[in-house]
Write a protein that binds this DNA or RNA. Structure first.
Lengths: 228, 228, 228, 228
DNA sequence: GATGAATGAGATTTCATTCAT
DNA sequence: TATGAATGAAATCTCATTCAT
């Protein structure tokens, strides 16, 4: 959140002088976003931050730790926000909207940061995400909780399990962000707001025009599968 | 598809002896799935294939080309299948089901292959995916086409654009596969079939219990966003 | 031993072409002797061997392994020789002489190699020697065995334990080699042969002129000790 | 020596407050003994001394200088002690005993300090010892002087040169200390005292049981040498 | 004196790729 | 086609030393 830093500084009673650690972290966002975590050398971070090479290692044990720090710092904010949203008395749909809105606005506010989080951690479960699978799962669980309660109070159908609903919801958001990140989708204030609405509309409203939700049809097996 | 290989061989009029190129490709799937593309050395592929180090470079220009080949080979099958499905006369919902089914079954049939395609290419848009963005986009476009026609004939509501619908649909599938790949979701024949149904149900049926689809509510802005 | 390599090659039935592994090993001796193990970069070895940087790592897992290999290769020869000597029917004194002679001649034959073994391993028990303490101890044990048998048959006095005798004997040899290595002692064929004799004479004959070995006198405690 | 410090302080007319320089020096002994000079970072010294990082550089020009200071401080004590011992009217054998005793007791009193001196300087002639070769040689020379005079007055045989005798004597001591330092020899008051006696007994008494010291026999050349 | 953040040169190691056979 | 030795560029991380306060 925007005030996290001020709080830290107030607590430490430090003057608002240049916080090199912060500078490195911020520079890392830019550097990682520009070249990708793997292709980004530690010297790129240092250059971007205008500090000496070694200072990165003064504050962080490794290049990995920089990304770890970056990710956790922000992901925890997300978890807190989702929790907060969940605690409000709102229709489940509005809660989901609020979450989508928060994430989309986060991207609008700092695309580089979100790019790094999504591309280098969340979607890179094989390398980095693995370390943070627990943290990522927590987000799913919180969303699933919202769905579950909505199903319990009857405002959501229980055609799918809460876990699946959460997966689908988060998957849609991530896909949309990915679309922006890689220039597959047009960006802009209008697009951002529309996206929030569309995501929720798709997941909650469904695509079907039929007002009455029928049972799940099972069409004939299609031709084979991808594997050899 | 299962017959792809036979076709190839017939075309080349080769005896069914050990096709080293094929062995390398298959070994690469295993090796990439096991260690991830980056951590996987060319020697790992050669070892897994039981061929000499240098032979990999006889058949492929680079390590990248191995993955490229692997991906395109299979992704094209997907594109063909989606096209085929689209050409059938089926309700849009059934078409989506068929697509989800095909992808899920592909995972069931060869989890390593799908892991590599999803984790190392599709979700790694920053490194590898970039090269294949066009191919990936094609799949979206095909799905969007299905939605578009359904909206035109009135079977799908037009609350969201076809592009968004496609993104959400594919995002849900990918997220579910990711769940299996990283042991966040239980696997099994039952789970696979349930997943197909749930994905379609979520995207088409929507979560809302309300039969009449209302307008999109816009809840009060939530607290800030993730960025600093 | 001189014929070790020929044997290897004969066994492998290889032509006497340039054995790069061997070249690296030999170059390492020169490089380590010149700059010391720590100050010597892997590139120094490669340069000295006239091979590419990476080839060192093709044959050895690490710079350490190069020294390990070097040391063990030769130390095992020493152990074998001591064993052989011990098996001969010779007076103990002659056995010790043979050992001293072997070591001194080894230095005469390849001063660089012995410098590396002594300076970088044997006398560097804190870093490298630690790994090879067992091997080093084996040499002590063999020497102690010679002394022990001599004490048993009455040819050696048992004023000191065999272990101590071995330590003193080996310590004297090492010190002499160190003297040559660091230019504290004149080198030359005469000096080498004299050294062999002196070492044995000192350890076996003792410095005392008194023919009758008395008991150990205990003089008054001297002033304190070095520590603070 | 124990009184060295008091003398220093008296000279500087300082209060007995915590002498940071001294603390650093003492901490360095512990740190060097624990990790070895090379592996020991300057920060390890500072941590051990509970002083700030930079203070080490306030008192010493470099990490090397810390070890230099440490070594010279103590080695000079040794040289003085040997000189003192030499000036006493004692049989040469007793003088050697006194020297061995002093060194062994120094180890008993402060094993860490002696470990550093022996392992990091005296036995590390390639790196550190080189700087202190002169100082080390001085000790040899003093011992050699004792032997020489003993040979002149007839109490020592002149079968070996005084230089050699000194080398053998010091080599034996160093080897024994090394044995203790690396747990190859049992430690304990009894062992320490026995060691003193044994060292002198070996070097002065010799191992041979034969009372009459014969000429140096020259056994047949043993098999080759270690080098390739 | 005292502090510890800041600097940056340097070394090991990895591994994709090439090439001679 | 097949082999695997040979090449060398690159990147991380360490840590002695400096310096501003």
């Amino acid at each position: 959140m925007a005030s996290a830093r001020d709080a830290e500084e107030a607590a430490a009673d430090k003057p608002a002088g240049p916080d090199k650690r912060r500078m490195i972290l911020d520079a890392a966002v830019v550097a990682f976003a520009k070249r990708g975590f793997h292709a980004c050398r530690v010297s790129d971070i240092a250059d971007e931050a205008n500090v000496a090479y070694g200072l990165v290692y003064h504050y962080f044990r490794s290049k990995d730790e920089v990304l770890d720090t970056l990710f956790l710092e922000r992901w925890n904010v997300l978890l807190e926000v989702i929790t907060e949203i969940d605690h409000q008395t709102l229709p489940a749909r509005d809660k989901l909207y609020a979450i989508a809105s928060f994430i989309v606005d986060s991207y609008r506010h700092d695309p580089d940061l979100m790019k790094v989080i999504i591309v280098e951690v969340t979607r890179a479960a094989n390398s980095f995400g693995r370390t943070h699978l627990t943290a990522i799962r927590e987000a799913y669980a919180l969303i699933a909780g919202i769905v579950e309660k909505a199903q319990a109070d009857g405002s959501f159908r229980d055609a799918v399990t809460p876990g699946f609903a959460a997966l689908a919801f988060y998957g849609a958001i991530e896909q949309v962000l990915t679309g922006w990140i890689f220039d597959m989708l047009p960006r802009g204030d209008e697009e951002f707001d529309q996206a929030k609405a569309f995501i929720v509309e798709t997941i909650c409203g469904g695509l079907d025009a039929a007002a009455i939700h029928g049972t799940i049809g099972r069409p004939p097996e299609p031709s084979d599968r991808m594997g050899r």
